[in-house]
């Protein structure tokens, strides 16, 4: 028997399953972030952020999430972490910085938590 779809299974705390529903919701946001593979596009975003958000047709929810620089809000708006990482990269932030922000820790605390996971 096939397994039930993740959406039909108990939710996992602190975890968003990036399925078709989320992929549709976040499409313009993710498409913009995908464009950041190219330096010219990263530069264009930095040069005029509002114009860049407009160019990719972001919704108000997407725009507010991006302007707030709040990754949890971007995920709630349908952002996928692999694409959002490219936005974070524009600001020189790594997945450890992003992890710290999402968990409300300092980056040092977040890194220490990871190190501790190896000691237990």
């Amino acid at each position: 028997m096939p397994h039930p779809a993740p959406t039909e299974q108990p939710s996992i705390p602190g975890t968003t399953i990036f399925d078709g529903r989320m992929a549709m919701k976040g499409y313009p946001l993710n498409k913009m972030c995908f464009s950041f593979n190219e330096k010219a596009n990263r530069d264009a975003f930095l040069h005029d952020e509002d114009a860049y958000l407009e160019k990719y047709g972001l919704t108000e929810e997407h725009k507010e999430a991006v302007r707030s620089r709040n990754v949890l809000r971007m995920i709630a708006a349908g952002g996928n972490i692999y694409y959002l990482a490219k936005l974070a990269g524009i600001f020189g932030l790594t997945v450890q910085d992003v992890g710290a922000q999402q968990t409300g820790m300092s980056v040092e605390e977040f890194k220490a938590k990871l190190v501790d996971a190896g000691r237990n």
Binding site: I12, P13, G14, T15, T16, V71, L72, I75, N80, I81, L84, A85, V95, V98, G99, Q102, T103, F110, K113, L114, A117, G118, N120
Partner: peptide
Amino acid sequence: LDGERAGFINK
């Protein structure tokens, strides 16, 4: 990497 559970490890 994502969500409030970012940093989750299960040794």
